[in-house]
């Protein structure tokens, strides 16, 4: 492993036994609700900290807690393509997600895990292992503060964090592949009609993982998890979302992440 910018904090990864979950496919709001469930349980000590990789049934635009959906999404095109709009509990920006094109993971840990770190520093700390993992499979990745993972081939992904319920929740979404035209039709990056030039420029700006390694997505995820296990000093336990956690998440979908009040509110 390469030397760490976070020599002082790096041993913290080894202080816990981590649950590592490769999540089943769920409806888009359920993943967001699971983040809250896992944050609460990690914060209270009811559950150990976790790394959870998401999977989804449908495309979605997860957008930041402080964003106004009308400014970020073309609602008509989102509907046309069957894209769910879900507000996250974290800040940050909107992303266009087609399940097969994206890798998303969440880390939840007690707040002490990031004590002594400022917000900007903790973003990079929590994604350092991912940058390392991407390099191990030949992607020239690097961190671009505040919250982006970039590479010699373009931007790969972004992270968002919340410090709530006595926990830190950190989730990251990375492009494995992308359909730039569809993304530009769904996200309101420019207001004019999507031009070939805009598509070309988006394709240059973003550097999906598949353009930089030939590895299939599932193998990329396995490589990420292998590096994570190294960071954790082998203190990882492969696990699943429990029935109880899923029930709690379903309730949160009904009361929050699946409601218009939450998703359509103007901050």
């Amino acid at each position: 492993m390469s030397e760490s910018k976070f020599a002082e904090f790096r041993p913290r990864w080894k202080e816990y036994e981590w649950r590592v979950i490769r999540g089943e496919k769920v409806a888009p709001p359920v993943n967001h609700a699971l983040d809250e469930v896992f944050a609460k349980r990690a914060g209270s000590g009811e559950s150990p900290p976790s790394l959870r990789v998401w999977d989804r049934y449908e495309p979605e635009v997860p957008f930041g807690r402080f964003q106004s959906p009308g400014n970020e999404v073309d609602a008509e095109n989102a509907e046309k393509y069957g894209v769910a709009l879900v507000r996250r509990m974290t800040g940050g920006g909107a992303m266009f997600v087609e399940p097969e094109n994206i890798i998303t993971y969440s880390i939840t840990a007690p707040i002490n895990f990031v004590s002594g770190m400022g917000a900007v520093e903790s973003y990079e700390f929590l994604d350092e292992w991912v940058v390392g993992a991407l390099r191990s499979i030949g992607v020239e990745a690097y961190y671009e503060p505040i919250n982006d993972i970039s590479s010699s081939g373009g931007k790969i992904g972004g992270s968002a964090q919340a410090r709530s319920f006595g926990a830190v929740l950190h989730h990251t979404t990375m492009s494995y592949e992308m359909d730039a035209r569809k993304m530009l039709e769904v996200l309101r990056i420019g207001k004019e009609k999507v031009s070939d030039k805009a598509v070309e420029s988006a394709e240059k700006r973003v550097g999906p993982i598949k353009r930089q390694t030939r590895m299939p997505k599932e193998e990329v995820i396995s490589a990420l998890l292998a590096t994570f296990a190294e960071y954790a000093g082998g203190n990882v336990r492969t696990d699943i979302v429990s029935e109880e956690e899923m029930d709690e998440a379903e309730k949160l979908v009904e009361s929050r992440y699946g409601t218009r009040e939450w998703n359509e509110m103007i901050p």
Binding site: Q67, G91, A94
Partner: peptide, 25 residues
Amino acid sequence: IADFEVENGKLARVSINGDFFLEPP
């Protein structure tokens, strides 16, 4: 991003939004 109206020379229905981070929300 700032979305607002102007009424009688004063700001009204102000919404500050964007992709920033803020604690507590």
